[in-house]
Computed example of a mutant assay.
Amino acid sequence: MMRSTRRRFIAIAAAAGGLPLLPFAAGWGAPSKNPLLRFWSGAALGADASMQIHHPDPAVADRLIAASLAEVGRLEKQLSLYRPDSAISRLNRDGVLDDPPFDLLRALAESLRYGEITGGAFDVTVQPLWNLYAAHFSQPNPSPNGPSQRELAAAVARIGQDALDVTESRISLTRPAMSVTLNGIGEGYVTDRVVELLRAGGVEHAMVNMGEIYALGARPAGGSWSVGLEDPRAPTKITEEVALQDRALATSAGYGTTFDPAGRFNHLFDPRSGHTSWRWLSVSVEAATATEADALSTAFSLMPEEATAPIVRKLGLTAHFIRPDGSRLTQRA
């Protein structure tokens, strides 16, 4: 299974001397210049992740990091498609899941809500399209034009959140060969749960990246955290800096995960047509939660600006769009 690389689109300026926070070597420790800052980096949901927290007691900070990692592990057992034994993997395999765990229910309920908000652009049931494109380009000498229209139509027939039945006691996929994915919202959801844990533990200053970013409080020295958005045409360069404080940021871009060597087909699936989207080079969303930023950056990648603007205003967002010609558009509430 291909791994999403969305976290590469964002660079974080750390509180300690403005040094880049990413990437780290795996593990945790305190930078020598500031013993109150604790760092961790590793993997979550099959991809790179990191935390930077500020706490007056390094031992307490390390316990909170350990608790956060345990929470990530617990959530992966429910939400990760990278684990064949996860609750979501069992749901996809069997088409039904009795006594579903709370966080899977909550994440799916959030997914359905953002599907409604975006008029169906966000759809948690698009996993058949991922399976189709991955299978097509994994076979010997695949057509460079991608799956056939017949294959796309068959996959689209398996999609639709109206066919996802979610109750507290049971989750059912009511169409044959349906499957769901939380790849468009799960990283944000996990990020939010870690932030909740740190906040409950007394942390007032932290930068959490479990695939999506949340800035908890201000930088320890004062002022907002600085986050740089990657230039899609020159991925090693920063095209814009964003100030975050008690806000989340997520970016979606087609070039982050492509299926074919030519890069024509990406992971941003239109649930209606089955095609992949290059409407925008990248979309970044600032929101109150990482869950919201994650889901809406995914959905906005498929939507025209006249459709995203009302959502931005209603939900109090800021959205940054980069067009195919490299020009930029920012929408604010």
Rank of each mutant, 00 (worst) to 15 (best):
S138T: 04
S111N: 04
Y214M: 01
D294P: 03
H267Y: 00
I88W: 11
G228W: 01
D85I: 14
P304K: 07
E212V: 11
W280L: 00
A155T: 05
G146D: 08
R38T: 11
N183S: 15
L229C: 09
D325R: 11
N131K: 13
H267F: 03
A333G: 15
A309W: 06
L104K: 11
I171W: 12
R279M: 14
A30V: 04
T276M: 02
L104W: 10
L97E: 10
P35F: 06
P144V: 09
L315R: 12
L268S: 11
L173V: 03
R323N: 15
H205I: 10
R279D: 06
L197A: 05
G211L: 05
E110H: 13
A243S: 15
G223S: 07
L129F: 07
H267T: 08
S32P: 07
A87L: 05
F24M: 12
V195M: 11
D260L: 12
R272P: 05
I12L: 15
K33D: 14
L315T: 02
V242K: 04
D62L: 02
D62E: 13
L198M: 11
P232Y: 08
I159Y: 02
I185Q: 03
T276C: 02
A163Q: 07
G186K: 09
L281A: 10
A25F: 10
G184L: 11
P144W: 14
E286R: 13
I185L: 12
T191Y: 02
E212F: 00
R150D: 14
L229R: 11
P261I: 06
E286H: 03
G120Y: 05
T257F: 03
S282R: 02
A206C: 01
A215E: 01
G316P: 13
L69C: 08
A30P: 06
V285W: 08
S138Q: 03
R199D: 12
L164R: 05
L152M: 08
R332P: 07
L91P: 02
V96Q: 10
E71S: 06
G29T: 13
A250F: 08
P56S: 12
M210V: 13
R247A: 15
